[in-house]
Nucleic acid binder design. Structure first.
Lengths: 347, 347
DNA sequence: CTGTTAGCGCGTTCAT
DNA sequence: ATGAACGCGCTAACAG
């Protein structure tokens, strides 16, 4: 492989001038031509390792995820990788298989590998590993999930507010008996807080038997949902705090031939039909009401924020929290109970 | 950051001995202790760029895919990344967005970046870029798709044989009017060859109007399927050459409330229910008959073959083609016509 | 098995 | 704007 010295000899220009040219600094028109010709002739490529040894830049960034087969992530990564590539960065993918320990290990490995930055969707509730990484000079952007009491750059969505507003809408449609099935992660927590706040603000009771917290790596949401349906006083509306619970609702629907919204109204945080290879669920009518996350934007903003942090890596920044807006779509899957009972209350 | 020289001073052992120790060569017990203590005390980490500058190894490999949101790939990548990590390699992800040109660019970029190896699911029909990459000393493993007339290490599945045998089974069940909807990629081609061979070997006619080749980036398989159904002499069995066509069949099924197998028997290459977040389709009965690909194994074998190639990079190997076995599952979605017509032919 | 020495290819002072 | 010289941190070839 040709080195910069070969270019030096071929072009007759000294290698420091070539090096300057290579990083976009001004060079005599005459030298520019000589250099370009020599580079083309030799098919010279800069050696990233030699370059990185001096500059301490690898031009690669890490993305650390709990599970790449979770269909939520690929669209985010796709956009992220696209943006990073435009700026000359490669993306290293790390799947930590929902293991908190492995997450910590992966973060350490990437940091040791001297990636220039990291995007992390954490499953941990302590942030020591992240703090250590940042202290080592590697900027970290938290994706989708935060850690309580830890301030860090992040990209999330309006979990709390979106859930709050969605449930308020359902309450306005007359729903009083509102249940929720959810997981035990950060996002689930925020969303359920929104649900409960909506109930509270509408002076509705929060009934413990209607709130089912699951470990979605173990528990089957469809079972929890069936149990809710089989209560002597079942809910009229089910809030599914994520796609897995939404899919659980779909299973129950298919299994019991459940009438939506006749027997149960359903609202899902996430929109199954927008997930990869899932568009066919739109043929199961009525579609579940949904809260759509802007996955491409999540990837885009993660890239932009990370690029910014890497640009001025030395400076101390305030942590920036970018909270993207979701889109609420109430479909026929949520019954208008109020209309049925008292149509005079409509404006 | 501490360097090997700091360890040298701290431990009193020369840096070349330290370097040897670091790459697992034998060292005096006495020195081992000194070195380990110094490393621990200083929290020394090897500098991958300085190391790579000498050894020309980055300990990272590239995976180049047409579309990471295609649910076929994430499980493969997951396993691949897992295996590579165990051997100290990181995985760089490159999505070329189904663009043949971008695929070529991405391969060049990764090769320039001096990754130690590459796994590629190509969309190209010429192999110049791959040849160039291998000539530069970067081993390439082709994944899922081959290029006609180009010999290269690869991991595929038994597209031809699996399709052949599946269709033979259906023919044995009495099917004569067999249609197929398929895409224009390598795998589709192999599978359709298998279908046609099965028809030929059973002395059944290959009716042009039953074979629909689509550009799945543009054409909607559900439309082609509906057209087949609306023929004056419609097929009794539909072969879907990939998951997208299978999903098209699912759409038609849901949209027209199609009776399976009453109005149409369906066989899909790929099993929708095994795709991420898709297990709920098992509640739509009867499940489509399917040919399941061993996705984890694909990732595992790709990793193993690549590791082997990187180990003895200088030697010239014969190209190895690993063809993994799929699993056929004929369900109630394929009608037993023969039984209905002539139960006396059963043994 | 150890330590000494000489680069790997490039970035970055300096003087000019 | 340019060229000469040094050093980034590590590995490998050598002599001991």
């Amino acid at each position: 492989l040709p080195t910069i010295i070969d270019v030096e000899q071929e072009s007759g220009v000294s290698k420091s001038t070539i090096s300057r040219f290579l990083r976009g600094m001004t060079v005599t028109e005459e030298n520019r031509v000589k250099i370009e010709n020599a580079i083309k002739k030799l098919n010279y490529k800069i050696n990233p390792m030699a370059s990185g040894l001096k500059s301490s830049k690898t031009f690669s960034v890490g993305v650390i995820l709990p599970d790449i087969t979770d269909s939520f992530f690929p669209p985010i990564i796709k956009e992220f990788e696209h943006c990073m590539l435009e700026h000359g960065y490669h993306v290293i993918l790390s799947d930590y298989a929902n293991s908190r320990e492995k997450e910590i290990i992966q973060l350490g490995l990437l940091s040791d590998k001297m990636v220039d930055g990291i995007v992390l969707a954490t499953s941990n509730i302590k942030a020591d590993h992240i703090k250590a990484c940042i202290d080592h000079g590697v900027p970290v952007i938290m994706l989708d999930r935060l850690i309580a009491g830890f301030s860090c750059d992040s990209i999330t969505v309006d979990n709390f507010n979106a859930s709050y507003r969605a449930v308020r809408e359902c309450i306005n449609l007359g729903h009083i008996k509102i249940a929720a099935v959810h997981g035990h992660f950060y996002t689930d927590g925020e969303r359920i807080k929104g649900v409960k706040k909506a109930l509270k603000d509408s002076k509705l009771p929060i009934r413990d038997e209607y709130f089912r917290k699951l470990n979605l790596h173990i528990d089957k949401p469809e079972e929890a949902i069936e149990e809710l349906l089989d209560l002597t006083d079942p809910p009229t509306l089910l809030f599914c705090s994520n796609i897995y619970v939404g899919i659980g609702a779909l299973k129950v629907r298919l299994k019991r031939n459940l009438k939506i919204p006749g027997e149960l109204s359903v609202l899902v945080f996430d929109d199954i039909s927008t997930f990869p290879n899932h568009d066919y669920v739109t043929y199961i009518k009525p579609e579940f009401s949904s809260i759509t996350q802007p996955v491409s934007e999540i990837g885009k903003y993660a890239a932009e924020l990370l690029l910014q942090r890497m640009k001025d890596a030395d400076k101390n920044h305030e942590a920036v929290n970018i909270e993207l807006k979701t889109r609420l779509k109430i479909t026929q899957s949520v019954a208008n109970i109020k209309n049925d009972l008292s149509s005079d209350q409509n404006k």
